[in-house]
Design a protein around this nucleic acid. Structure first.
Length: 340
DNA sequence: AACGAACCCAACCGCCCAACG
DNA sequence: TCGTTGGGCGGTTGGGTTCGT
């Protein structure tokens, strides 16, 4: 059943707000508070729909709104929360004091989303975009460094040489399946979002901008799955939509796996940083396919804090993301920019 | 300098859901 | 139980600005 317009549109002004209108609305709300939005425009002497007033207030006029560029930490928080909550902008905004859902949504769509795409990360699933890969590239013998008799048997069985790594195939299959079936990973209702918020809040070490951002206080808490025996068999679970599954997911984030085994956001609220789980297994090739930005050593990849305080250019942020985040090997010949 | 393309973001649209009578 | 309403949400639009040629 369609919903009737929130108000009679005839005679009501639309479009950009004038300073005079802003002042009227601010004055009224300062005096009377923001109660019944339908009656506010009438009482405040505005030829506006109540909905328009509410939007103007919540997205622009509210005194606690923080204006200006998003900090790197805010960006990271957005990305992390988005990986869990999906496009629940209000839920994400609730964790970023002073930022509105609309502002975050716009920032995501205009900045973060594009950056992730440039990095070869699917902004919906937060997984590397394997759909862009030529699977023949996965047959590179140098891709994996694990000795595996099972793999040898498997490849012998398939008669393939050089062998396709079965784990990689399984991963690719799971990811593709996940991307096909779980494009809407977020819960459906605001209540669910709130529940999830609570659950996330209860995750040990998961904090938001309101408090020091140190999800993993010490290295010992960081899970370090081995590629061959600890890959989630069904990564689609990551994107499940039910509340309980989201809860499980949240738990998994700290207890078992990162959303993607070799794809991990770096947490660096303090000088503690997340170990690069997969750095011993793969190296990240930059998007032009020539330069490896990822660390190949098992030491924390940003023990000196990869993020340079005060760095603010898009490139610097992207490089920081790349060096911290993506340790997934892209084929040398793949230029993600070709797909942009 | 002029023009078109690309980008940015405030504002709007339409749907959903809980509350209420 | 059902219909209506208000508030809230995510998605989309369009006008202004910036960038590139």
């Amino acid at each position: 059943m369609g919903r009737a317009p929130c108000c009679d549109r005839s005679g009501l002004k639309r479009g950009p707000w004038t300073p005079e209108e802003d002042q009227k609305l601010v004055d009224y709300i300062h005096k009377h508070g923001s109660g019944n939005w339908r009656t506010i425009p009438k009482n405040a002497g505005l030829q506006r729909c109540g909905k328009s007033c509410r939007l103007r207030w919540t997205n622009y006029l509210r005194p606690d709104i923080k204006r200006g560029r998003f900090s790197f930490e805010e960006e990271e928080t957005i990305i992390q929360l988005h990986s869990i909550l999906g496009n629940k902008w209000s839920a994400i905004a609730a964790r970023l004091p002073g930022r509105t859902d609309n502002e975050i949504k716009n920032y995501w769509n205009t900045h973060i989303r594009k950056r992730l795409l440039r990095m070869g990360i699917d902004p919906v699933t937060h997984a590397p975009r394997l759909d862009l890969l030529d699977f023949s590239s996965l047959m590179s013998p140098g891709l994996f460094h694990h000795g595996s008799s099972a793999r040898a048997d498997f490849s012998r069985l398939l008669g393939i040489d050089p062998p396709i790594n079965p784990e990689l195939l399984r991963l690719a299959s799971s990811l593709l399946s996940s991307q096909r079936h779980n494009l809407n990973p977020a819960p459906q209702s605001f209540q669910e979002s709130q529940l999830i918020n609570q659950e996330i809040q209860e995750i040990p070490g998961f904090t938001t901008m309101a408090s020091p951002f140190v999800p993993f206080p010490n290295e010992a808490q960081v899970p370090q799955p081995k590629l061959e025996d600890e890959f989630p068999s069904n990564l689609a679970d990551f994107s499940s939509s039910s509340n309980s599954q989201m809860s499980d997911l949240a738990s998994n984030l700290t207890q078992d796996y990162a959303p993607f085994p070799s794809y991990e956001y770096d947490y660096h609220g303090s000088d503690q940083s997340l170990i690069d789980h997969a750095s011993t297994n793969s190296a990240f090739n930059s998007l032009d396919g020539h330069q490896s930005l990822g660390s190949s050593s098992p030491t924390p990849i940003n023990s000196n804090s990869t993020y340079i305080a005060g760095s603010s250019t898009e490139d610097e942020r992207e490089i920081s993301y790349c060096s911290n985040v993506l340790t997934f090997e892209l084929p040398d010949l793949l230029d993600v920019n070709d797909f942009m």
